[in-house]
Every structure is written in C-alpha cells, then in structure tokens.
Amino acid sequence: MHPAPSIILFTTLSGLGYGLAAVLGLGLLDPAAIATKFAHVLALALIGGGLLSSTLHLGNPQRAWRALSQWRSSWLSREGVMAIITFLPLVFSAWMAVFESRYLLLPGLLGTVLCLVTVYCTGMIYASLKSVQTWHTPLTPLCYLLFAVAGGFVLAGFFAFCGSGRTVLVPVLAIIFLIAAWAAKALWRDHMKRLVPLSTPESATGLGNIGHVRLFERPHVTENYLTSEMGFKVARKHAAKLWFVALIAGGVIPAGLFLSLLLTGAENGPFTAFIATLAVVTHMLGMLTERWLFFAEARHAVMNYYGG
C-alpha cells in the first residue's frame, strides 16, 4: 500500500495526542504545574492537527461532515464521530487545568476512555479490510492502542520532568508501555511474515485448475490509480533495516533515556528537560518509521491481477 504522508502524519500525531490526553485524564500530573497546562494544550493541538492533516488527502474535503453519517457500518465514520464526542470532555478538562489549575476525576476518566475508543476505531479501519491481509488481525488495533498509550506516557513523562517535584510513576509507566507496545508490534510482524496468502493469481482469475497463472500483459503500460495506490513495494532488506531503526528510535532509546533519568535521580532542570525532549523526539521519529512500514509492507489483494 502506498504510504501517503498525510495519513502517516495523521495516525502518528493523533495517536500521540489521544495518548497524551488519555494519560492526562488519569490525573497523574500536578494540575497546578505550568507544564501540565502546556500538556493539555499540546494534546488538543496534536489531535486537531492530526484530524486536519487527515482531510488533506480527501478529494472533496468540503463535504467531510458527511463522513459522520454512516457510523452503523463504517469504522471510518465511527472514528469521526468518536473524535468529535471525545473533544467535549478533553476541552473541559483542559479548561479546568489551564484556567482553574484543577483536575476533575469524572470528566478526566471519561476523556481517557473516549480517547482509547477513538484510537481503537482508527485501528479497526485497517483491521476491517480483508483485502489487506497483513492488517486484517485483532493485533492491528491492539498495536494502535498500545502505541498511543506508550506515546502518551512518553509525552507525559516529558512534562513531568519539566514540572516540579519528583516524578517516578509516569516515566516508569512509559517504559512499561513502550515495552508492551513494541512486543505487540513484534508479534504483529511475526504474524505478517507467517501469512499464507489468502488470495492468489489462481483464485483471482479462477484459472487455477488449468495451471499456474502469471501475468502476461498489464491492461495498460503506465501506472494507474490502483497501481500507485496499492502497488507500493518495499525491498525486504530495506524493510528489515527500517524495522530495526523504528524499534531502536521508537522504543529502546526513549525507554533507555527515561530509565537513566530515573536511576541517576537527576534533579528536574534544563538538563533533565533536554534528555526528556530527546526521548520524545526519537520516539516520534520511530513512530513515523513504524507507520511508514505499516503501509509500505502491506500487500493488497488486487496485486494478484498486476503480477505483484
């Protein structure tokens, strides 16, 4: 599948935003700290920015509101509806934190639950497509959820280190969820590698009982919408390298940095903030790589008609 930058950016940014908002909803950060107020604003900005970038790839974005209508059958529609509903408690909680320096348990927890439901819908958009076998597994939404939560704790950890007072719980949870998320993703990749193709050129043409089917001539010489949208292929050796990069940048480095901050018991200050920033930045780079691979490595059933 073609790794469209707008979709990669959307899923990464909004995943981080929802993760951060979900963590903020738990009330683990001091609502009076300036850093926490920033965190609330950042979460809303990431979510909003993600949603906006997702409309960039639409052919007719002016009608995007129509996408809220088919929630009974479409996971994309459900995601849109949930995104809007989720905004209500998030904005309320942000308001309370920014202007009143308060944390309220009920709206907070409600926001956390709704954030997770929204991310689950995002994962299900992909998992529901039988035509892309790699994605068609419950592990897909699980990875989306765990990555969102891990990213949320990484960001929250950054704000905790920037705030005042000792912080242990949030960075510890960040490390735990980073491990859980990348373990789930490793399972997902393992699942992908062991897949026996559901559809083949033989089943796609129905000619399998005559013999082995191979493409002789494409319908057209140049690329078309189908081949450019679904015919993307990434060389195996590059995929293996990129997976390594994603894992190190997205998981090992941020977890290692947080761990060293915890173990050395460094005082909150500019240096700690710098290390925490590094953790956030590498995590984001790792996530972008992971999302790129998520698309680039997925094979669509239609390629059985195009010899790929």
Binding site: H57, G59, R63, S131, Y225, E229, M230, H300, V302
Partner: peptide, 21 residues
C-alpha cells in the same frame, strides 16, 4: 456525497474502483 477518501477502493479486493483525480 463522496468525499474521495478512497477507503472503498482499498476495501475492494478486485480493484474495481478508481478515483477520478
């Protein structure tokens, strides 16, 4: 009503839908 999101083309295993760019 179509917003041109392209999801239906992804869902069709046969490649029977093409976006008019």
């Amino acid at each position: 009503k179509c917003i041109g999101c392209g999801l239906c083309a992804w869902a069709c295993p046969y490649g029977a839908r093409e976006m008019d760019l």
